[in-house]
Amino acid sequence: MADLLLLAALLLAVVVTALLLRWWLLGRRTGLGSPEERATYATLHTASLAAPALRGGLTADTASRALPYLRSLLGARTVGLTDSHGPLAWTGGDAWDQAGSVVADVLDSGRPQASGHVIVAPLTVEDRVVGTIVAVDDAPSAGLARTATEVARWVSSQLELAELDASRTALMEAELRALRAQISPHFIYNSLGAIASFVRTDPERARELLLEFADFTRYSFRQHGEFTTLAEELRSIERYLVLEKARFGDRLRVVTRVAPEVLNVTVPFLSVQPLVENAVRHGLEKKDGTGTITVVAEDAGAECVITIEDDGVGSDPDTVRDALSGRTGSPSVGLANVDERLRTVYGNDHGIVVETGVGLGTKVTVRVPKFAPGVE
């Protein structure tokens, strides 16, 4: 009997808790459902729908995709976007005949203007007028004029972000070209020399190395995409080390530890391989006897942590600082390039960290967020 009473009490407690939770949730929903809150939500939601198109820059295509949402924000009969040369797209009808002269004045003055049924506000990027937003209504009000100005400012902010993205992409491409120009000739010369040494003594080995060399160079010189997966980058590193082991023989040992969870993490293209090449060139080439390179990729919650460590000759910390600053004459040509690209993509908190000392080897650590805006 006592057990039944206890069970009944527990069931009652569960039911009461469930009812209280439901009441609390309903109260929360009611609190979030005031006209002002619904209007705020609708505005932010509509703006978020327009943002992806505008982040593509100001073109006829992006204007066409963004305009339905901008028209909803403005509540005007007809809305258009222009660049500095003329109209890009309209929704609700073409009003260029009415708006053309006003648009020209706004492009020239950089200030919002209204004339008759037409309201025009400038779109600016870094103080440059790059276009306008046009609102046409049967009875335009002062409220519509203020709204058009605010919407134009928001559109301008999205266009500035688009320009920053384009600048970042151009910078990344330029740095990749510089990296290939600086690092690849040295590696190609050494690899071909190693392969040539096997042509007579071990033709099959020479053939295998040539295939590895072809796959490595195909990856390194590909012309599309600024990002890749960590798995692809590690495969390239494996090919690179196979070629270097052909040159070093038993002097080079390689240890690799990779967590399967991080293989699909997206990383900047050629962001790890140059660090491995740097370890070989500046850590092990000058060392007598056997040298070891250890490549580790670990799962660290929201980040992937990659370390490249060698037990080579090490370096003076001041020399490393010179390398990271990109000063002329620094031997570690890849360090500054990789560091700059990582900071460009992920922010200043994600540059490379180098631990080294003369005769103590070198350890380079890279922390890559598993998910980051614009990285895919």
Rank of each mutant, 00 (worst) to 15 (best):
A2R: 14
A13C: 10
A18S: 14
W23S: 15
R29A: 11
E37T: 01
A39G: 10
H45S: 15
S48T: 12
A51F: 00
A53N: 09
A53D: 11
G56M: 00
T62P: 04
Y69A: 13
R71C: 05
R77M: 09
T82N: 10
P87Y: 03
P87K: 06
A95D: 11
V103K: 07
V103M: 03
D105V: 04
G110M: 11
Q113A: 15
A114W: 00
A114F: 00
V134N: 06
V136T: 03
S141G: 06
E150H: 12
W154H: 08
S157Y: 02
Q158P: 04
L159S: 03
D165P: 02
E173N: 12
L179I: 02
S191T: 13
A196P: 04
T217D: 07
R218V: 01
F221C: 06
R222V: 05
Q223P: 02
H224T: 15
H224V: 13
I237K: 09
I237G: 12
E244G: 00
R253P: 00
T256K: 14
R257G: 06
A259F: 02
S271I: 04
V272M: 01
L284K: 01
T294V: 07
S315T: 05
T319C: 10
R327H: 05
G329P: 06
P331K: 01
P331F: 02
L335I: 01
R341G: 05
L342W: 03
Y346H: 11
H350V: 00
L360V: 02
G361P: 04
R367C: 02
V368L: 08
V375P: 11
